[in-house]
């Protein structure tokens, strides 16, 4: 497999405060890479850096072999990178349908976009029932589904997911991760997943990176990382 996204010696700072130091990371075509780490390890910051949101970068970010680290957020989206941010980025005063339409804002293929509404509703039937409802009235789980569905409306090559399990009931989380698995299987959308829930992330991912205070302390195929005794103690609790 080849790299879809590659970070080389990436350094990230908020103003003068460095958060990530010389980090190397790869997301392969069709792969799911998970980034594990405690609060404050720099996971969210890393995703923001890829989209050039409110952070300062050094080093290189390559997407499909092209350097993108100096491009603006709006242009990075147009390359096919969809970001499901922390806090979900819901437009709470707009309807579910309008939120989905915004996901396809950069696309000009109207006919295919119409089909993709149906596709989104197939993955998330509950959103169809609520299509005309204000997004702010949805439950937390439904809003997370909406955020993922909106990201899919871009027809992205790469999906950046920032803690999709955050604040949700275990059953809802399982449902969402099942759907993420399906999306990856059926459409070959690559994913970079940030999670605190290591069990979930290790089950879904093909490759795992462990992040501690802005540095990678271990990485490898998910099966090998989850067999590591230290990882089990620190992240899985057994």
């Amino acid at each position: 497999m080849t790299a879809l996204l590659e970070l080389r010696e990436l350094g990230v700072a908020y103003g003068q405060i460095p958060v990530i130091h010389k980090l190397d990371l790869v997301v392969e075509h069709g792969g799911i890479t998970a980034l594990l780490g405690a609060n404050g390890a720099g996971k969210t910051t890393l995703l923001r850096a890829i989209c050039n949101m409110k952070v300062r970068n050094s080093g290189a970010i390559l997407f499909e072999g092209r350097r993108i680290e100096t491009r603006q957020t709006e242009d990075i989206v147009r390359l096919g990178i969809a970001h499901v941010p922390d806090g979900r980025g819901t437009f709470v005063h707009l309807t579910v349908e309008e939120n989905l339409a915004l996901g396809a804002y950069t696309r000009r293929d109207r006919a295919l976009v119409a089909q993709d509404f149906e596709r989104a509703y197939t993955y998330f039937p509950r959103l169809k029932e609520r299509a005309q409802q204000q997004a702010g009235t949805l439950s937390g789980g439904e809003q997370q589904m909406l955020a993922i569905a909106r990201a899919l409306m871009l027809r992205p090559k790469l999906l950046l997911l920032d803690e999709p399990s955050f604040g949700l009931a275990p059953l809802v989380v399982q449902e969402i991760f099942r759907i993420l698995r399906r999306i990856n299987d059926e459409e070959n959308v690559s994913m970079l997943l940030v999670e605190q829930n290591a069990t979930l992330a290790l089950a879904l991912a093909t490759h795992v990176y462990l992040l501690e205070t802005g540095r990678v302390v271990m990485d490898g195929p998910a099966s090998i990382v989850s067999d590591n005794a230290a990882v089990r103690r620190a992240y899985l609790g057994y």
Partner: peptide
Amino acid sequence: LAMRAAAQNPDASRLVGI
């Protein structure tokens, strides 16, 4: 729609390419 979105949530708007 994009103008309404940009007024409500500028960050999320950038992430959909507005």
